[in-house]
Design a protein around this nucleic acid. Structure first.
Length: 492
RNA sequence: CGGGAUGUGGCGCAGUUGGUAGCGCACCAGUAUGGGGUGCUGGGGGUCGCACGUUCGAGUCGUGUCAUCCCGACCA
């Protein structure tokens, strides 16, 4: 492993890219804009999936799967949605290759095999799903439909970055159908809460819950709720969205139901999603110049045990103890790896697990064996302590909780310290350039003002926080009256 | 799509005025080690992104081309 790993201060972007690759999370693939998620990175994603999936199930949702391809005619049905995604769609036009008659051993697209209708590779699944729901819904008795899908989607981005923006990415998308507007809004808000809970309690990443302005709203939604996080470099990152789709898709796909009075009405819809982008968020929330830092709740390996020994006999003695410790930790539901490979030295292992963000490391050597102790090191603070072997599992359990807490608190302190109230456009620009972070500022509520600020500063309104404090003020750009501050930031 | 850069063993790089490739890490074998990326000895592996051209001779010069990365516009 290279020793000249860039620091965050030197080059945050390079730090991020190299960290992902060197921590063995992912790498660039042979396909432009697409990454290979490696086992270690995928294991983190699986932990995220498990936690989220349970929360979805606990709130009454079920999983299903819909096709990767969307016929163009369906895709274009909801105009705003189609328009919003049109410029980043991959399109399948043919279904066969054949040997090139002019170039032996090479293949060409068979011109005879042109599809009568092009297939859009889903950038999101509203269209195909609502076309399907049409056949499932006749009566209010068929509602609600509460479905989630774990899938891949493709958005042909011009510029990509590992996890943060890849042409193909993994996500989950919930698509629900309801009899009333109120119920759909309640669902939208509920899922936002689920996301916020996941971000804060599993990722240890504080988020601001809010709603998007019209400019930033999901194409085809009436309202977009979001959770916004702040990365270490002062840029914001949209970590999850929950959309109230109104009756837009029901109208586009003619999905009506008979209510209790026998009257026909269009179905109300929501959709909500989080993606592998959260992996990037995780990295940019906690990791440091020594590599990845993982919150215990999402770490594939929570505790690693490293033996320090001379000779096989000593290893056997240490292994016996180590296996005992491993067992007692496993019994507490803690994931443990005992790394007794003799192909790497202890120091090498220390550095390696540190780089990969394993929250707790236990080292056992002959000295410990004699004293009935172990050396315990925590990744978040780099602190090392000697613990007695007796009752170690409780200690480690507590330590993991403490680390989880500490990471959250650290991130929260950072986030709070980087919400800056600004009251003039000059101050806005100055703070944005010098400090970054969220800027709480008054805005006159118009798209034009938002757009102008974006054009001039690259900062966008990340959200209007929920339960936002109401106060009289003047728009920083136009000086027009404003009733509340909104959060601006430069964003990923 | 605009700007910048880079393509040389698995990875990271060097390669002077053109004379058919070298270093570090990794890898393999042996050996001594083992409380923070271990030392020593020996070993295997590349035809220099691709094409064309200049030349007696091209990693090196020229033209073209492809790819990737970074910055920006677009976006989760």
């Amino acid at each position: 492993m290279s020793k000249q790993f860039p620091t965050r201060a030197q080059d945050y972007s390079a730090w991020y890219n190299e960290l992902i690759v060197k921590a063995d999370m992912a790498e660039h693939s042979a396909v432009k804009g697409c990454m290979v998620i490696k086992p270690y990175g995928y294991a983190i994603w699986e932990k995220m999936q498990q936690a989220l999936d349970k929360m979805f199930k606990d709130t009454g949702h079920v999983n299903a799967y819909f096709p990767l391809f969307v016929p163009k005619s369906l895709f274009e049905a909801e105009e705003k949605n189609a328009e919003g995604f049109a410029k980043e769609c991959a399109v399948v036009t043919h279904y066969r290759l054949k040997t090139d008659p002019d170039n032996k051993g090479k293949l060409i697209v068979d011109p005879e095999a042109k599809l009568t209708e092009e297939l859009v590779v889903r950038p999101t699944s509203e269209a195909i799903i609502w076309n399907t729901y049409k056949g499932w819904i006749q009566s209010y008795r068929d509602l609600p439909i509460l479905i989630n899908q774990w899938a891949n989607v493709v958005r042909w981005e011009m510029r990509t970055r590992l996890f943060l923006r890849t042409a193909e990415f993994l996500w989950q998308e919930g698509h629900t159908a309801h009899a009333t507007r109120e119920e759909a809004i309640k669902e939208t808000e509920q899922m936002l809460e689920v996301y916020a809970h996941f971000a804060e309690n599993f990722m240890a990443m504080p988020v601001v819950k809010g709603i998007k302005t019209a400019n930033e709203r999901f194409a085809g939604a009436d309202e977009t709720y979001c959770i916004e996080a702040l990365m270490q470099d002062g840029k914001a990152l949209q970590a999850g969205t929950s959309h109230f789709l109104g009756q837009n898709f029901a109208k586009a796909f003619d999905v009506k139901f008979a209510n209790k009075d026998g009257k026909l009405d269009y179905v109300w819809a929501t959709s909500w999603g989080v993606s592998t982008r959260l992996m990037g968020a995780l990295v940019m929330t906690h990791s440091d110049d020594q590599g990845l830092v993982l919150p215990p709740k999402l770490a594939p390996i929570q505790v690693v045990i490293v033996p320090i020994y001379k000779g096989e006999e000593q290893l056997a003695q240490i292994s016996e103890k180590a296996e005992q410790i491993k067992k007692s930790l496993l019994a507490k539901g803690i994931s443990v790896k005992y790394d007794d490979r003799d192909t790497q030295t202890p120091g090498w292992k220390f550095a390696d697990y540190e780089f990969k963000g394993v929250p707790v490391r236990i080292a056992i050597g002959p000295r410990d064996l004699a004293n009935g102790t172990v050396e315990v090191a925590r990744r978040d603070t780099k602190e090392k302590k000697v613990y007695a072997m007796d009752g170690l599992e409780e200690q480690v359990e507590n330590l993991l909780n403490e680390i989880q807490q500490n990471l959250y608190q650290r991130a929260l302190d950072f986030r709070n310290a980087n919400i800056h109230k600004v009251d003039s456009y000059e101050e806005f620009k100055k703070v944005l350039d010098e400090k970054g972070g969220f800027l709480a500022a008054h805005w006159d509520g118009t798209s034009e003002t938002e757009q102008q600020i974006k054009d001039e500063t690259k900062a966008t309104i990340r959200c209007i926080p929920l339960n936002n404090k109401q106060e009289e003020g003047k728009c920083i750009l136009t000086g027009k009256p404003s009733k509340q501050r909104v959060l601006f930031a430069r964003a990923y």
